[in-house]
């Protein structure tokens, strides 16, 4: 195994070649905000929260998919990145209908946490108030598109872990939305095994257990971590 050494925020890190900057930062306990990333799923670099600066280029790089290089000098929290990340989260709040006060995921939401982390006390971008739908056709779960940030974790967890591929993305641009089956109501999708992994993976209150009310959303992230670990390392104990 080859090892690469690099500097992240002035901290020296040594890590196996082929690792990502995000993994290297985690190893050194340097926090890099993420949103679409979920351990064990194919990274898509879509949310752009984990963008970092690398010395010697003016481009920014997504830490979740950029491999470490020998002698790399990475900055994860420059004023420029802070400014961009705040705008990025504001854009998410402005494009959906995120009403924290009445959301199942209130106080248990990665988007809400990120807003605090990047220092959003208000959105400088006007809210779009899009007209979006809610699908409650599934007997156990619901999806509220108003709260969806299109991280596609549900799409990937269903496809890659459960192997059912119930979810996908339809349309483009601001009309993009998560769709189930052949653009059917969720409850009519026969491929759905009702495993609930999408509920566990969803960072916001978009996919939830029916019956949960404000602030009551339950997620079993450890179940996902267990499954990934079991598959990769054949360790089947929890």
């Amino acid at each position: 195994m080859t090892v690469k050494t690099l500097k992240i925020d002035d901290i020296d890190v040594a890590i196996a070649a082929g690792s990502t900057i995000l993994q290297a930062a985690q190893e050194a306990s340097i926090p890099i905000p993420t949103l679409c990333h979920l351990e064990g799923l194919t990274p898509v670099a879509a949310c752009r929260m984990c963008m970092v600066e690398i010395e010697g280029t003016s481009k920014l790089f997504p830490a979740c998919v950029t491999e470490v290089g020998e002698g790399m000098v990475v900055s994860t929290n420059t004023p420029k990145l802070q400014g961009y990340r705040r705008m990025n989260v504001e854009l998410l709040f402005a494009e959906g209908n995120h009403v924290c006060a009445i959301c199942v995921a209130n106080d248990n939401c990665e988007l809400q946490d990120l807003a605090v982390e990047v220092g959003i006390d208000h959105s400088r971008f006007p809210y779009q108030f899009p007209k979006r739908s809610i699908d409650l056709s599934h007997p156990q779960f619901g999806i509220d598109h108003n709260r969806c940030i299109l991280c596609t974790r549900c799409v990937r967890v269903c496809d890659e872990v459960e192997g059912a591929h119930v979810w996908d993305v339809a349309q483009r641009g601001s009309a993009c939305h998560i769709t189930s089956g052949m653009d059917q109501p969720w409850g009519e999708v026969s491929a759905c095994t009702s495993c609930g992994k999408c509920v566990d993976a969803c960072p916001t209150g978009a996919i939830f257990h029916k019956g949960e009310t404000t602030g009551e959303k339950q997620r079993d992230r450890e179940k996902l971590a267990f499954l990934m670990n079991a598959r990769e390392h054949q360790q089947w104990t929890r």
Binding site: M87, N88, I149, R172, G173, S174, A175
Partner: peptide
């Protein structure tokens, strides 16, 4: 024409 995959392009171009 934004595909909608990444946030800056999907939501930023609208703003």
């Amino acid at each position: 024409e934004s595909c909608g995959k990444c946030v800056p392009c999907r939501a930023g171009t609208v703003q």
